[in-house]
């Protein structure tokens, strides 16, 4: 495992924990898109089904379980525990606009036409667009709490580091997964506009 991959995973974990702590400590999920969090829970669920079929490493298993548990706790916090603080009015992105094309594409373009592989592909495609309801919500309300922008920063950083990881693996291991790489690049592009605002506005 290379340094980009480790830092990417740490950054991903940090993003998830920042969001969860923000909600728990402020007892509020204002400004957070519940729809994006549902999509991330769905992403982890459909991708980590291999927890039941093959063992890769202790690190791999632990991280998968942590991501899954955190994703479901976050959804629980938004839709159950702090439901009253959830701004459902502005979380109005239509999920079918993402789910329908992503489902279709995962059946058409995958490594092999088997249930687990199609679900894995679905999770990769879905992750690349899962943040859109959150970005849509921010552009609609025109505001985001500082802590929410930190969450998005680490989530975007994780994606950028994974690209560096793939460049590294391509050169050192001849490793290349087209589905993951293309989706990963698409996903990272969505964060570029946010990164620009984070750096320029964040300093004021």
């Amino acid at each position: 495992m290379n340094i980009f991959r480790i830092l990417g995973d740490v950054s991903h974990l940090l993003a998830i924990i920042i969001l969860l702590l923000k909600i728990v400590k402020s007892k509020s999920c204002a400004g957070i898109s519940g729809k994006s969090q549902i999509l991330f829970a769905l992403v982890f669920t459909t991708r980590y089904l291999d927890l039941f079929t093959n063992f890769i490493s202790v690190y791999n298993t632990v991280m998968k379980v942590v991501f899954l548990v955190c994703a479901y706790i976050t959804v629980y916090m938004i839709y159950v525990k702090f439901r009253k603080t959830f701004d459902s009015e502005n979380d109005s992105f239509r999920l079918e606009f993402l789910l329908v094309p992503v489902t279709g594409l995962s059946f058409l373009e995958n490594h092999s036409f088997t249930p687990l592989e199609i679900l894995w592909t679905f999770s990769i495609y879905l992750e690349s667009v899962a943040i859109l309801p959150q970005l849509f919500m921010i552009s609609k309300t025109g505001e985001a709490e500082t802590i929410t922008t930190h969450y998005l920063f680490f989530l975007g950083l994780y994606r950028a580091l994974y690209i560096a990881n793939w460049v590294w693996r391509y050169h050192t291991e001849n490793f290349y997964d087209q589905i993951a790489v293309v989706s990963g690049v698409v996903q990272t592009i969505f964060y570029c506009d946010f990164f620009y605002l984070y750096v320029t506005k964040g300093r004021q």
């Binding site: 991959r5 995973d9 791999n60 991280m63 990881n165 490793f175 993951a180």
Partner: peptide, 10 residues
């Protein structure tokens, strides 16, 4: 390049 399915990644 060899195409390997990257299931070890998160």
């Amino acid at each position: 390049a060899a195409v390997v399915v990257g299931k070890d990644e998160l």
